[in-house]
Simulated assay, not measured.
Amino acid sequence: MTESNGVGLFISFEGIDGSGKSTQARLLADHLRAMGHDVVLTREPGGSPGAEEIRALVLQGDPDRWSAETELLLFTAARRDHLERLIRPALAEGKIVITDRFADSSRIYQGTRSGDLRDTVDKLHELMIGQEPDLTFLIDMDPETGLARAKGRGGDEERFEDFGADLQKLMRKGFLALAERAPDRFRVIDGGRDMVTVASEVAKLAEDALT
């Protein structure tokens, strides 16, 4: 996987709330820029003006504000706008795109919250998105520790954090199962270590993917 011939590299970071994935995505972007790469750092939901508007709808408010089905449609709409307006144009220009969450989060958060939605998540993804990252870093974290971190940082994701530790445990199990099913794409990283050690491992694996 390289940036040559107008084809960029698409990298995603996944993990439960408080796992440190957002920090690691930013550190990797900084590292690759320092190496001379053209990097776009983005996030989901969000990354484009329309998707950022949807972000405010789905991440804030009462935990029961939306059903899992409605959530899935909102996230897919945001992802489609993000894909059209930012991700695909950047990849076509040969850039490295690093996103904090992508479709795997919908597979786990919406698909797991309502067990009978998992097939719907995959079908909707195939119909409306049709793209996977080239490389996904799963920052694995103890759910209790991750939730404590998430609660202490503030920010705009309190609605999902308010679902509590039981959901976080379910999410972690789901993410690890995804990684087992797609080992060529996923790299599972122990997020319980210090930030610098984690960043060093991520950077090495990303560099390997670029050679």
Rank of each mutant, 00 (worst) to 15 (best):
E3F: 00
I11G: 02
S22D: 01
E144G: 13
V58T: 14
T23C: 02
D162N: 09
G18Y: 00
D194H: 07
R80H: 11
R159W: 07
G20P: 04
M141S: 12
Q131P: 01
F102S: 06
H31T: 09
A165D: 00
Q110V: 09
L9K: 02
T2L: 02
R65T: 08
D104S: 06
E132C: 11
S19N: 07
D190T: 08
D119P: 05
E53G: 13
A90P: 10
G152W: 08
A206N: 01
R118Y: 07
S19H: 00
L41W: 06
L135S: 02
L205I: 13
G61F: 13
W66K: 10
I96R: 05
A29T: 01
R118Q: 13
I11N: 01
A92M: 14
L86P: 01
A92I: 11
A199F: 04
E207W: 00
V58E: 09
G174H: 05
K95C: 03
P89C: 15
S12F: 02
E84W: 09
E207Q: 04
R181Q: 14
I96N: 08
M171K: 10
A51K: 03
R193I: 04
D140P: 09
S48V: 11
V97C: 01
L86M: 15
E132N: 13
A150L: 09
V188R: 09
L83H: 12
G154W: 07
E144N: 14
A68N: 10
P63K: 13
R33I: 01
I108F: 12
L167K: 11
M171V: 00
F163Y: 13
P49Q: 10
P63V: 13
F75L: 14
I96S: 08
D17S: 04
H82F: 14
L127Q: 05
D162S: 11
L91A: 13
M128E: 11
Q60K: 15
K173P: 00
A56K: 15
L74T: 03
D140S: 12
P63H: 12
R101S: 08
L167V: 12
A90Y: 14
D38V: 03
E52G: 09
K21W: 00
T197P: 04
R107I: 07
T76P: 08
T145A: 14
D100K: 10
Q110Y: 10
G164T: 05
K123F: 10
R149A: 12
D17H: 03
F13V: 01
V121G: 02
F160C: 02
V188H: 05
F75R: 10
R65S: 11
D17Q: 03
K151S: 10
F163W: 15
D208M: 06
T76Y: 02
S67H: 12
T99F: 01
M128R: 04
G115T: 09
P89T: 11
A203R: 05
D38A: 13
S19V: 01
P45I: 11
E84K: 10
G61I: 10
